[in-house]
Design a protein around this nucleic acid. Structure first.
Ligand SMILES: Nc1ncnc2c1ncn2[C@@H]1O[C@H](COP(=O)(O)O)[C@@H](O)[C@H]1O
Length: 256
DNA sequence: GTTCTAGAAC
DNA sequence: GTTCTAGAAC
């Protein structure tokens, strides 16, 4: 069927971008069988075919890459803007690191014991990772630097840095999050899977793909969002969890 | 993104 | 009857 894509650890599951004919798993084939703990579904969807969506080539609209239902038109989608516009108006409990290029804040609804967002201050910034190109490599470097600073000042916590494949909030933001995924604000499958499947795109992989291909290798928004609905599996021991309460109880036991 | 809650699932 | 999920929100 498919090559053993067995996840040692879903966080670090690497889908090598195909250079030749690309056997992209389609939602249709994926729905043929529902295999428990099917690791193939945890792989990142990549699309080799041309995008179904047409992007209006060079409008200045940062929504250009987003499908109509994902465009940032609701007021709640702009809640991150004040941090970038006026970082000095927030206390050190909220804004934890500021550089010329990046503001790092504490996530208001943390999905783990530590959860930060690194926000680029430049406004020439794509709405999401689909818009990233070589031009943004310096910015990605600044985000990486911010991540390193945050990690170095919290040596007791293993942190991960990455983007959501399809963001809900406007303004490009890098998640910097501890691996435990233990938090009262983690309340549903979507929350969990957005950090425990390849819906989460590690920063180092994003940088590597842009270096190699000039942009990231990623499936459609629909393919990526399908990852949010797959069965719950513990990121650490791979056990299937029947629901969110069971998962949350289990995650506590994974913490040594 | 969150909150709230109807009704599905147990 | 209680737990849990998932969709509406103007
Ligand atoms: N007002 C806010 N202040 C800070 N963080 C927020 C606020 N509203 C939402 N968030 C976080 O923003 C992140 C947006 O994630 P996403 O768009 O899925 O990449 C989530 O982790 C939210 O918890």
């Amino acid at each position: 069927m498919n090559k053993s894509n067995k996840a040692i650890h879903p966080f670090f599951l690497v889908k090598k971008p195909a250079t030749t004919a690309n056997p992209v798993p389609t939602p249709a084939s994926a729905s043929l069988t529902r295999i428990v703990a099917d690791s193939s579904k945890r792989a990142a969807p990549t699309s080799s075919s041309a995008s179904k969506k047409q992007k209006s080539s060079d409008s200045g609209d940062s929504n250009y890459a987003l499908s109509p239902n994902k465009q940032h038109n609701q007021s709640w989608q702009h809640a991150l803007k004040p941090y970038v516009a006026n970082p000095e108006q927030f206390g050190p409990e909220v804004v934890v690191d500021v550089s010329r290029e990046v503001v790092v804040i504490v996530d208001k609804y943390p999905k783990a014991r530590l959860h930060f967002l690194a926000l680029p201050r430049v406004h020439e910034c794509p709405a999401d990772i689909r818009g990233l190109t070589n031009l943004h490599l310096p910015l990605l470097g600044s985000l990486q630097d911010a991540f390193v600073r945050i990690q170095e000042t919290r040596p007791n916590m293993k942190l991960r840095a990455g983007f959501h494949s399809v963001p809900s909030m406007a303004h490009l933001h890098l998640h910097i999050i501890s691996e435990d995924l233990i938090s009262p604000s983690l309340k549903n499958k979507r929350h969990y899977n957005s950090f425990a499947t390849s819906f989460f795109r590690p920063l180092n992989q994003v940088i590597a793909e842009i270096n190699e291909f000039g942009r990231i290798q990623i499936g459609t928004e629909e393919e990526c969002e399908a990852l949010l609905k797959i069965p719950l599996v513990c990121y650490k021991c791979q056990k299937n969890m029947k629901n969110i309460p069971e998962l949350k109880k289990h995650l506590e036991t994974e913490q040594s």
